[in-house]
Nucleic acid binder design. Sequence first.
DNA 1: TTACTTTTGTTACGTAAAGTAACTATTAAT
DNA 2: ATTAATAGTTACTTTACGTAACAAAAGTAA
Lengths: 127, 127
Amino acid sequence: MRNRLPFGNHENSSHPNVTIVSKLNYKTKCPVTATLQLIGGRWKTIILYTLTHGTKRFGEIAVRIPEISRKVLTEQLKELESDGLIVREQFKEIPPRVEYSLTDLGKSLSPVIGELEKWGIENVLAD
Amino acid sequence: MRNRLPFGNHENSSHPNVTIVSKLNYKTKCPVTATLQLIGGRWKTIILYTLTHGTKRFGEIAVRIPEISRKVLTEQLKELESDGLIVREQFKEIPPRVEYSLTDLGKSLSPVIGELEKWGIENVLAD
DNA sequence: TTACTTTTGTTACGTAAAGTAACTATTAAT
DNA sequence: ATTAATAGTTACTTTACGTAACAAAAGTAA
């Protein structure tokens, strides 16, 4: 089973957005968990971050994230593709060429990744 | 080894913050990865999110995240504490009472979690 | 002709992380 | 003496991830 993540209610009654909460069935579906189901794996965010600056080949991604194994990179790219966050384009060439890029949905994550980046700069790398 | 995550350079030369980049030794340390080392586990973000609305007892957290096992919850809480994101307060009572709350550093993550929440509302729960 | 190169994967196998169920400690209440 | 309540811990199983070797396919060099 993939991406087993909580879907309970992580709020208490003092949450400010009460109206939105009821509209979205907030009691049973947590938006943070919903997001984490798509980008919450060990590598997905950093893969998406790598693609933020433009289309990349499989090998280019692998070089930029040297700690990930090629096997897991393949797996994660497949999941990101089936979740609609990236697109895979294969060229009929030898040696093979495969390019990955963000979809509009994937691009819409840039504020999220931007905050991760900002927090890291201000709170970790600043030391 | 805990939190083995990439620390390579996931940027290309077209990144806008060139000045900041050089200041922070951006070539060897990726701020997104730095953040993910602290909150990138499978459960940490949702634990922090649960504490966003105030101090909670161990059992209260467990109830709000029913999918996490108590064993892993204990482990993750210890890591979050040793990373300075939460504090643990134990009361000398029977039955025991232990309360967890965000530190200032933990509270500073609220814009990050806020973006995760917002994206989930707009792109997943809206369907 | 034979072997080598390049790139994107896949396969078999080993290790690490997470899940499950049962158990512990402690004291007050029944 | 037994039960209840809370915050964990322990032993064991399952899932996720890592490693190293190999496959496919055509062009190039010897």
